[in-house]
Design a protein around this nucleic acid. Structure first.
Length: 673
DNA sequence: GGTAACTGGGTTTTT
DNA sequence: CCCAGTTACC
């Protein structure tokens, strides 16, 4: 029998238990923030397995890889490791799609070595192609390649035409509608010709497989149960996929909270959650309303903040009476805000709250810039989640481009990037060489020596060396050796290109080290692209205190997580809510849901910060001394349940000066007290 | 003509 | 940090 110590039913309340023990009919769980939705979903997986559903016939679709791993591990520990049993299938929509697409590449007209493009790769491809459509050069105001990539993705994710998307989301690009439409069409062609797929294609291809006469039954029939987390964040393609997987709804479990829908910019629409309840007569809806996370004063603010248009009379309540009311700190400016946050973190640490129990949650990655400087100066270790990732660092992209060429020599963007790394080759020459080579027509790696001969004399030697290196790398047997050979090839180029090459080569060394454990280099690259490691801890001091560190995270990346103490800076109109969203009611509504997500991350203590002056703030552009003292988030109703504090003493940016002067060892905080 | 090196201005959120 | 624009070298 199964090991039942601490069984899945331990400590579940009635609502949770009814969800966990529900049968095979479609189940929708409306779960407010902090109501134990992860626990419930995990317990349900365990209960299904105990009921005899084979683990590998359960599919768990989550929003992040971390959530999937976490849940699968917890389900396994609940039910005990059953010898010989397989693990439930799980991952993000994109990761699971990639598995299916890779398995059926041939059916989809893709070569085995197809390349997965991340969004910046997409921008690079479009950049290479835009010239042919009159979208490059100076003069008229032309969309940048990132904008083009974003518009393309939005067309796919919202399933709208180019003209619709430009009209609503990118009106300043409308004069170029025809050119952009042509560019997108050609982009699709080029992806097909070069065996390139982007993130959106993964979903499209998976859906296509699920619509195929024969394959559909096979693929959907592989699962008895499909569980989807964070359903309020699915887009219409993902809805199609879920419907195709469970056509009659049997074996479908969905969890979500439409008050936490924060991915509208990516084509998500929380109405899909509500739609589902009317989809089949057999649907059961369970509401989880008891919050197990936050104290009562924090929850009171959460209920004030919770958007009123959100479905469901989902009224959260808690047993956790007592605790401090949330604070709002009105600060003189951003440096004062950073100082106040660092003070608060140190004060809590002295009371015995470890740093890992404290988080700074930001609307945009750069909102924590000054906080990071302040923490560095005071030698408080921190790690930053979200925002710039390791994979986006130039040298990592260089490495990945080179490695991709081993499997897919027709990857033009990779060639372009690799060529430009050589001193003496700029955009024009690289483009000419890539085009002359027409890599999509054959094995460009073998044909390359001829192209080297056309390059300027001074770079030929280094080009040949690179080529020899890659060809050599391709013959290596193990993945680890191949990755190491690619790095060896790249090393002189990285040394030449980047001043801080020592740090960068160190990064790459560690990256290559992880390649040793995988069987397939291409698969490893795809997984890396889908689930990029976090950025290297740059400014953060060495973790003296045994891996104890403050978390700094974007609110988007903080979804589903919790901390005893939470700080939220920049709660000011134009920063949070973002000025990008101030213009439209839908944009503003999403900001409010984001605010709700942020507030509900806190268990015991919550502090919001309103700097009254942001020097580089858009509203202050014309007048650097203008004030923006209002926040629509901090209205009368919110203030009524909070404490207001003042931190209005002007400060000089001593922290920045200290860092610049390299005197960070000095405890400058003493100067301020 | 193409490239590198430098300067100044700008930056939402993610799979 | 990334991008666009400028200038000076090959």
């Amino acid at each position: 029998m199964f090991d039942h110590t601490g069984g899945w039913d331990a400590g579940l309340d009635d609502a949770q238990l009814s969800a966990v023990t529900h049968g095979d009919d479609p189940l929708v769980i409306m779960a407010g923030a902090g109501t134990g939705k992860t626990r419930t979903l995990t317990a349900r997986v365990a209960a299904l397995m105990e009921r005899g559903v084979p683990a590998d016939r359960i599919l768990l679709l989550t929003f992040t890889r971390r959530a999937a791993d976490d849940m699968l591990a917890r389900a396994e520990s609940l039910i005990g490791a059953v010898p010989g049993s397989r693990r439930p299938q799980g991952g993000t929509f994109h990761a699971v799609a990639h598995r299916h697409v890779a398995a059926h590449a041939a059916s989809l007209g893709l070569s085995a070595g197809c390349t997965l493009l991340d969004p910046s790769d997409v921008a690079d491809v479009l950049d290479l192609m835009r010239g042919a459509f009159g979208l490059s050069g100076t003069g008229a105001r032309l969309p940048r390649s990132r904008t083009l990539a974003e518009a393309y993705s939005r067309c796919i994710n919202t399933q709208r035409t180019v003209s619709e998307v430009l009209a609503t989301d990118f009106p300043w690009c409308e004069p170029h509608l025809d050119a952009i439409t042509g560019l997108f069409r050609a982009f699709t062609e080029r992806k097909r010709a070069g065996s390139l797929i982007d993130f959106d294609d993964l979903l499209l291809f998976w859906r296509a497989l699920l619509r195929h006469d024969v394959l559909a039954t096979h693929l959907a029939g592989a699962y008895d149960h499909v569980l989807v987390d964070e359903y309020q964040d699915v887009n219409s393609i993902q809805v199609d996929i879920v419907r195709a997987l469970r056509p009659d709804g049997r074996g479908l479990t969905v969890v979500g909270d439409d008050a936490q829908a924060i991915y509208g910019f990516r084509g998500s629409d929380s109405h899909h959650l509500g739609d589902l309840t009317g989809q089949w007569p057999s649907v059961t809806t369970v509401r989880l309303e008891q919050n197990f996370r936050s104290t009562e004063p924090i929850l009171r603010l959460a209920n004030v903040v919770r958007p009123t248009e959100a479905s469901g009379s989902l009224a959260l309540f808690t047993d956790r009476a007592g605790g401090a009311r949330p604070r709002v700190c009105r600060c003189y400016d951003a440096p004062a805000e950073a100082r106040a946050i660092a003070d608060g973190i140190l004060e809590a640490h002295q009371r015995g709250v470890p740093l890992r129990d404290q988080a700074v949650l930001v609307r945009a990655a750069h909102h924590s810039d000054l906080v990071e400087v302040e923490l560095s100066v005071r030698r408080i270790p921190y790690r930053k989640f979200g925002g710039l990732r390791f994979l986006e660092a130039a040298h990592v992209k260089d490495f990945i481009a080179a490695a991709r060429l081993l499997d897919n020599p027709s990857d033009e963007v990779a060639w372009f990037r690799l060529l430009r790394l050589h001193h003496g080759i700029g955009p024009a020459r690289a483009l000419a060489m890539v085009e002359a080579l027409a890599p999509e027509r054959g094995d460009a790696l073998a044909a390359w020596p001829e192209a080297v001969a056309t390059a300027p004399h001074a770079v030929r030697a280094s080009l040949s060396a690179t080529l020899d290196g890659l060809i050599g790398a391709r013959t290596r047997a193990s993945t680890g050796e191949r990755a190491a050979a690619v790095l060896a090839t790249l090393t002189p180029l990285v040394r030449e290109r980047y001043v801080d090459h020592a740090v960068r080569l160190g990064d790459l060394d560690r990256l290559v080290g992880t390649a040793a454990e995988v069987d397939d280099l291409g698969l490893w690259l795809a997984e890396l692209t889908l689930d990029p490691p976090l950025s290297t801890g740059d400014l953060a001091g060495p973790p003296h205190l045994d891996e104890d560190y403050v978390s700094i995270s974007t609110i988007h990346s903080a979804k589903g997580l919790e901390w005893p103490i939470v700080h939220i800076p920049h709660v000011i109109d134009g920063a949070f809510p973002s000025d990008m969203a101030l213009g439209s009611p839908t944009g503003l509504a999403e900001e409010r849901r984001l605010f709700y997500v942020a507030v509900t991350r806190a268990k015991d203590e919550l502090s919001l910060y309103s700097p009254l002056r942001l020097p580089h703030h858009r509203r202050a552009r014309d007048d650097r001394h203008s004030y923006a003292p209002t926040s629509r988030f901090l209205d009368a109703a919110a203030l009524a349940v909070m404490e207001v504090e003042e931190h209005m003493r002007p400060t000089v940016p001593v922290a920045a000066v200290a860092v610049a002067a390299g005197t960070v060892e000095v405890d400058v905080s003493a100067l301020w007290n």
